[in-house]
Design a binder for these strands. Structure first.
Lengths: 350, 350
DNA sequence: CGCAGTTTGGCAACCGGTTGACAAAATCGT
DNA sequence: ACGATTTTGTCAACCGGTTGCCAAACTGCG
């Protein structure tokens, strides 16, 4: 009619791909209304006459219309995207966190952006900086950032941290007590009186937290407890503690995580020690593969999937509050850890 | 000067967050130039007078300017984001793929969006539809979609599939021959003449491919081979094949993947069979945890990290070509599989 | 039938960049 | 010194939605 029919315009993008996707303007033309009416029909149900709304929906379907998220994000400032920042994608601890997060996000109509810091605080800050502009909120999983950096991020966008507690920032942390107490009781019942804790990285908030609870609860069961570490939270990290474990004279070990537990178990078996005959081992987290070993690993399960889910839900709440929603109290269903008894714990038989 | 100083405008978003981020307009005002000049200075190095460019960069730094990706995406149509669509995040096979992909993407200045289809073709199509508008390209990892759907997606955006071959679509697939031949030779040298293949899901392209290569190469080594399956690619799927494996009279088994191999190994051991004394088992992929078992699993390693990396790089190439770049030949470094001999294979000792 | 009150839909500005066209300024050749 | 050429920066339109404001149309009611 006016300038051009826009049939097969050779303009700009879509160089060799099929026609560029339909816009609300196309719909408007087809339905004979104003673009703004289309926008309202599509995003404000009820604002528009039912009859017109139907017509618009029909046109939209006919043109196979998809809303352009960028175009919406620009004026509204909301991207419907959440960022998940992990220390190390290949650490199995994260698998379930990611899955839980993905579920919660997609349930809420949000998309997940993933970034990895490769265990480096610097790279993490960089990654956060990079994705921050395109997300509505951010979840940090076992972050390597210092409190100050975390606070600064939290000031810019809704932010939730997993496995860490920072004053003034929402943190999702499992309830460590139940699992640890069950483990302690379990070991006590098996007759162990001297146990060790294999601690993780020196700067790990989680490792400290676990150690402190052990420290607070072991004595009342008549058990002595020693810390061995800090160590790298890996198979080798666990393996390397063997000599110190043997030297310490303990009969049972709780490890910072399953990887260390498995590493220690392997080293022990290779050196002729039987598990659990001569040494009982308890892991932490119940990661994928912790039941592959012989004996299968007894471990304190962390509800990682739930944690991921909760973190996202909390982030969504924060976003909501930010845009004027009621600051409804955080859903405080507990996230208890729990002992999973398998084969790596038992009485001393030797 | 003119209308308002825009100092602390209470407008719109940023309800309780600090000042909204600086824009090129702020920079322009500060540097005393036109916004478009700022845009050029920032994205077209050299187009602008060095002196001015410096001034602009200084202003940008002072205001702590971050480019708004949405705003850029709108006119250019490029989001600098890539989508990765997985069947199941918790399948350890994907860990390394994701990591490789993340690396390649962030190296190329791209961000990764993650989506999961939960092993359902329908959910996968839905997820693809959802993220397609916000990505420049898409990578499908062991997709559950049918060829037709894949082609349709490929027509809309640059697309690469992993572990599948579809006519007219770029696929990244490891070179299965080397690993399989090494495994066959290894088993032959150990004296095995009757082997079985535990196949995966009936509709798995990868399972078929593996089976066909086995079929083509076993006879010439004087080995007979039978297929047992199809089965679910899980621990239980492997476990369930035990009776058929025993009944078949084979002395060695190659499984579709490590999970099935481990499941079978466990079932065998529980029923009193020794591995590898009475039954040799070879897995596929070398996933995380495949060395946790006793004996550790011999397996054909797939270079998953490389595959993820390659898939992203290829996607980036496609994007490049689409926007007029030279269709430079796909980098064809092979992705060979390789046998990793551990403890689950040996001579029949019984 | 007339008037207040409510729907309904259009207009236009805006989000924050990008880019083609063009004019002013600087550079060059002779 | 002057016209031709190149460099540099401005103008304005555009990407595809959203939304405040307003007027037209419709409703209800006395």
């Amino acid at each position: 009619m006016s300038t051009e029919e826009n049939g097969e315009s050779v303009t700009a993008r879509g160089t060799r791909r099929g026609k560029s996707p339909a816009t609300i303007y196309d719909i408007a033309k087809l339905a004979g209304v104003n673009p703004s009416t289309v926008s309202r029909a599509l995003s404000k149900p009820g604002r528009i006459n039912v009859k017109t709304e139907e017509r618009i929906h029909a046109a939209a379907k006919e043109l196979n219309y998809r809303l352009n998220p960028m175009a919406r994000a620009l004026p509204t400032g909301r991207t419907n995207t959440l960022g998940l920042l992990l220390a190390d994608i290949t650490n199995p601890m994260f698998f379930n966190v990611v899955r839980g997060a993905e579920r919660a996000a997609s349930l809420g109509g949000y998309t997940l952006i993933l970034a990895e810091s490769q265990e480096s605080g610097e790279r993490e800050a960089e990654a956060a900086e990079r994705i921050l502009p395109s997300v509505d909120g951010l979840v940090l999983v076992t972050t390597r950032l210092v409190d100050q950096e975390i606070l600064e991020l939290a000031e810019r966008k809704p932010l939730v941290v997993i496995n860490r507690e920072v004053d003034g920032v929402d943190g999702i942390v499992p309830d460590l007590e139940p699992g640890i107490n069950q483990a302690l009781t379990h070991l006590a019942e098996l007759g162990h009186t001297r146990v060790a804790f294999l601690s993780g990285p020196a700067n790990s908030w989680m490792s400290c937290a676990r150690w402190e609870i052990l420290l607070a609860n072991a004595p009342e069961r008549g058990m002595s407890i020693v810390e061995i570490g800090p160590g790298s939270p890996t198979l080798d990290g666990g393996r390397d503690t063997l000599s110190r474990v043997v030297a310490s004279g303990v009969t049972a070990v709780l490890a910072y995580n399953d990887l260390m537990a498995i590493g220690l178990m392997r080293a022990a078996q290779e050196s002729g020690l039987t598990v659990p005959g001569q040494l009982s081992i308890v892991g932490f987290d119940d990661i994928f593969g912790s039941d592959f070993t012989s004996p299968q690993l007894s471990t304190i399960r962390t509800p990682l999937g739930l944690i991921g889910e909760r973190a996202i839900r909390r982030t969504l709440e924060l976003i909501d509050e930010d845009s004027g929603g009621v600051p409804r109290g955080i859903s405080n269903v507990p996230l208890p850890t729990e002992l999973v008894v398998r084969g790596s714990t038992g009485r001393i038989t030797d």
